[in-house]
Design a protein around this nucleic acid. Structure first.
Length: 138
DNA sequence: GCCAACGTTGGC
DNA sequence: GCCAACGTTGGC
């Protein structure tokens, strides 16, 4: 099983909206970036991810799970763009802010810091554990 | 609101 | 195939 990070502007698609979808989940659509798309194509059902709010909040606010593998993005006719479906698992008891991630030397290599514009990115198992603990999980 | 980073597009 | 121009994203 692999770990990922999904980034969203809360004004566009928020954790609250994602949670409201329940187990039915929702397409992670609208991605128009090849790198991000390629990561989604690698995802498998049961993979887990962080849900990150960019812009105003800049924090990991919850955990999600992949419930459908890559398929055409319903928001475009352009055959280049695929997406997966994800559902909310649980909120972070304490959201892990970008500031907190930056302050942890063990997380310095995260794509979140190195490639700030990438909206879908892989997370190593080590980074996953660290952030879960920082957020009050486990 | 600004700016840096970076991806995309189009002309050559 | 290169590169300049431009658009978008995200942090500050």
């Amino acid at each position: 099983m692999a770990y990922w990070l999904f980034k969203s502007e809360p004004d566009t698609w928020s954790w609250a909206q994602q949670s409201a979808r329940g187990d039915q989940g929702e397409e992670w659509n609208g991605v128009r970036n090849y790198q991000a798309r390629n990561f989604m194509r690698q995802m498998e059902i049961g993979d887990q991810g962080f849900f990150y709010h960019s812009q105003t909040e800049k924090a990991v606010v919850g955990l999600v799970e992949v419930i459908a593998t890559s398929h055409p993005d319903s928001t475009t006719d352009d055959p280049r763009w695929d997406c997966v479906d994800i559902k909310a698992l649980c909120p972070m008891p304490r959201p892990v802010s970008l500031e907190m991630v930056k302050a942890e030397p063990l997380l310095a290599e995260m794509a979140l810091l190195r490639q700030s514009r990438l909206s879908v990115q892989p997370v190593t198992p080590e980074a996953w554990d660290i952030i879960c603990k920082m957020g009050g999980l486990e």
